[in-house]
């Protein structure tokens, strides 16, 4: 009987404890980073507010619906930041410095260790502020989501999170082939910007298809938002989002294994 189901949660807790200890050494910095993220979040809401001061609706989305969308997108992005962003952008460093060799020798799943090494606690506070904005928007819309809608929102946000994770992991694996992969990982950050635009704004065509079926940025926060708002008319997009979360994960796992097999250490 493998004991992994007890070992991995324990390992996860240990990694968390380490992260908390480390972050609390730099309290001012910790607070300043929360301010930075909060400012950028306010900036996005401000942008949408300015746009809506010149229009009533964008592709069928009202002002508060879009603010909810921005909130939802920020929520997913911050949860992603909390768990994965630093860890995934560190991968190229692990390879460059040879730390990966050390991690490969440890008696745990290397992908697990790499993915969950550090936790960014400040991002949870930012995620909470995003939830605040979502609730604020819902109140202004006079919409009270049913429990099933909330559950659907959380599950589909999870699928969106999984897609971000898998795609960025996939990109980070490029570090096996070139040393300067960090830029690629940060390039991914640009994609987050597409997620807070109402899906109806993208006309049918190749662009829309790429960002729906290959890099599903149009779906990741639009679909959870629509579920929460009760405006998701066909379940097709929800199905695509869920299916893609599995597909991208499987692809990233396959590529990761392939890379590890042809990996021959940094110092060799």
């Amino acid at each position: 009987m493998p004991s992994w189901w007890r070992r991995y949660p324990a390992l996860f807790v240990a990694l968390w404890r380490y992260s908390i200890t480390r972050e609390m050494q730099f309290k001012t910095n910790f607070i300043l980073w929360i301010i930075v993220e909060g400012l950028w979040f306010a900036l996005q809401i401000g942008f949408m507010s300015v746009v809506y001061s010149h229009t009533e609706a964008i592709a069928g989305w009202s002002r508060w619906q879009v603010i909810l969308l921005v909130g939802c997108s920020h929520f997913i992005q911050q949860i992603f930041t909390a768990f994965f962003l630093t860890n995934l952008s560190d991968i190229s460093e692990h390879i460059r410095t040879g730390r990966l060799d050390f991690m490969l020798l440890l008696p745990v799943n290397t992908r697990f260790l790499i993915s969950f090494r550090k936790v960014d606690l400040g991002a949870f506070i930012n995620a909470a502020s995003a939830v605040g904005v979502i609730i604020w928007a819902l109140r202004n819309l006079g919409h009270v989501p049913r429990p099933t809608e909330i559950l659907g929102f959380l599950l589909l946000s999870g699928a969106g999170l999984a897609i971000h994770y898998s795609l960025m992991f996939l990109l980070a694996s490029v570090a096996f082939f070139t040393v300067r992969a960090q830029g690629i990982v940060w390039g991914y950050y640009n994609l987050f910007n597409l997620a807070r635009i109402p899906e109806g704004a993208f006309p049918p065509g190749i662009y829309r298809r790429v960002f729906t079926f290959v890099l599903p940025m149009i779906l990741v926060s639009n679909v959870p938002s629509q579920v929460l708002l009760g405006t998701l008319h066909s379940p097709f997009n929800a199905f695509v989002l869920t299916a893609l979360s599995l597909v991208t994960f499987l692809i990233s796992e396959a590529v990761w294994r392939f890379c590890l097999r042809r990996y021959s250490s940094a110092s060799a």
Binding site: V51, E56, A57, I58, N190, N193, L194, I197, Y207
Partner: peptide
């Protein structure tokens, strides 16, 4: 090149704004 992605999104957003007018 990556910087053009958010730009394209913003442009689509504005196109939708004008289309609704």
């Amino acid at each position: 090149a990556a910087g053009l992605i958010p730009l394209s999104g913003t442009l689509y957003l504005w196109k939708a704004v004008y289309a609704g007018k």
